[in-house]
């Protein structure tokens, strides 16, 4: 294929007011406007959303799965970050 490649975009949808945009998938489009149009056609045919974001896929920097341990494991030993770590007498009530 000698044809020029059409850029890839990641699609995020806000499903209801008050919720964050969530990754839905990706589309190919020549520019942002067409990416929005394609995202609308491909990912919101049944009222899935109220708002769309499209982001060029190559603009996303992802953490390396190999660093998973280094990045995320240390938090599992820091149980003092959770409210249940602290003892409060029952008669204090809800806190």
């Amino acid at each position: 294929m000698t044809e020029q490649r059409t850029p890839l975009w990641e699609v995020f949808i806000r499903s209801r007011n008050g919720l964050a945009h969530k990754h839905a998938g990706s589309v190919h489009a020549a520019d942002a406007e067409m990416a929005l149009q394609a995202a609308r056609d491909v990912y919101t045919r049944r009222g899935e959303g109220l708002s769309l974001w499209v982001v060029p896929s190559d603009a996303i920097t992802a953490s390396d799965p190999a660093d998973k341990g280094m990045l995320f494991e240390p938090t599992s030993s820091k149980i003092y970050r959770h409210p249940t770590f602290y003892k409060v007498p029952d008669d204090v009530g809800h806190m």
Binding site: E3, T6, A29, A30, D31
Partner: peptide, 16 residues
Amino acid sequence: GAWVREAALAHAEKRR
């Protein structure tokens, strides 16, 4: 559809 893909890319390039 080839001309459509070509035109879309050319348009995007021009705007950029």
